[in-house]
Amino acid sequence: MFINQFLIFAAVLFCIGVYGVLTRKNGVLVLMSIELILNAVNINLVAFGALHQHVAGQVFALFVIAVAAAEVGVGLAIVLLIYRNRRSINVAEANLLKG
């Protein structure tokens, strides 16, 4: 098995995730796309762990999963807060940074 088949698979997932983050308006869908990106990274970590026959790759993937759990928790809390204040989770409407 080529290492590249895993890496390119991960890269494709990553780009799809980026596309989702960039195009989706719905806050929950943006969060889902971010999960795609994180999973792509995890595949890379595990694949390199397998390539070098070292367990560190897997350990880092586990850490990433834990961080992702935290991220989803906080992210959903923010989305809920936006929803409560604006009755909408359209991230396009959250533009207080407009110059």
């Binding site: 806050g27 929950v28 969060l31 889902m32 999960e35 999973n39 999963i65 992702a68 759990a69 989803v72 928790g73 959903l76 989305v79 809920l80 929803y83 989770i89």
Partner: peptide, 16 residues
């Protein structure tokens, strides 16, 4: 992921 995070996301979908 499949257990916890998915459930969280579905909750998010419902709550919003």
């Amino acid at each position: 992921y499949l257990g916890a995070i998915m459930v969280l996301l579905l909750f998010g979908v419902m709550l919003t």
